[in-house]
């Protein structure tokens, strides 16, 4: 029972950490830019029906940063759909671990196209 309680407390703490990370990604991303392309995830030859980015729960995108560079990042399907993100949407990119995660920018005016 004590162990279960500790697990619940740890999960709540972890949720808090995730929430803070998400807020940081939304309000203070490392790089800001605009989505220029959703990378194709599909291999047209389909010899083994394997595609790029297979097994990942996020989708690969190309971002043009505010200083003109083009970088690769990934965006979760949830963020993309629920936030209504598309080509031309302004997003923030944050490096978490070895991954570049894109998140909707908390810039209310002209947020998404």
């Amino acid at each position: 029972m004590i162990a279960d309680g500790l697990v619940i407390m740890a999960l709540l703490g972890l949720l808090g950490i995730f929430f803070i990370i998400q807020l940081k990604m939304m309000f203070f991303p490392q790089i800001k830019g605009e989505i220029i392309e959703f990378e194709s995830i599909f291999d047209p030859d389909c010899k083994s029906c394997r595609g790029k980015n297979e097994g990942k729960t996020s989708l690969p995108i190309k971002v043009k940063t505010d200083d003109g560079k083009i970088i690769s990042a990934e965006i979760s399907a949830c963020t993309m759909c629920i936030e209504g993100i598309g080509i031309g949407s302004r997003i923030g990119v944050t490096k978490v671990g070895s991954r570049h995660i894109a998140q909707a920018c908390a810039n209310i005016r002209g947020r998404n196209n």
Binding site: I41, F42, R50, G51, E54, T57, S76, A77
Partner: peptide, 14 residues
């Protein structure tokens, strides 16, 4: 969406 994104290439390929 977790598996929708993860297995989408396989779904498209097939």
């Amino acid at each position: 969406r977790i598996l929708a994104a993860a297995l989408m290439p396989a779904a498209l390929g097939l």
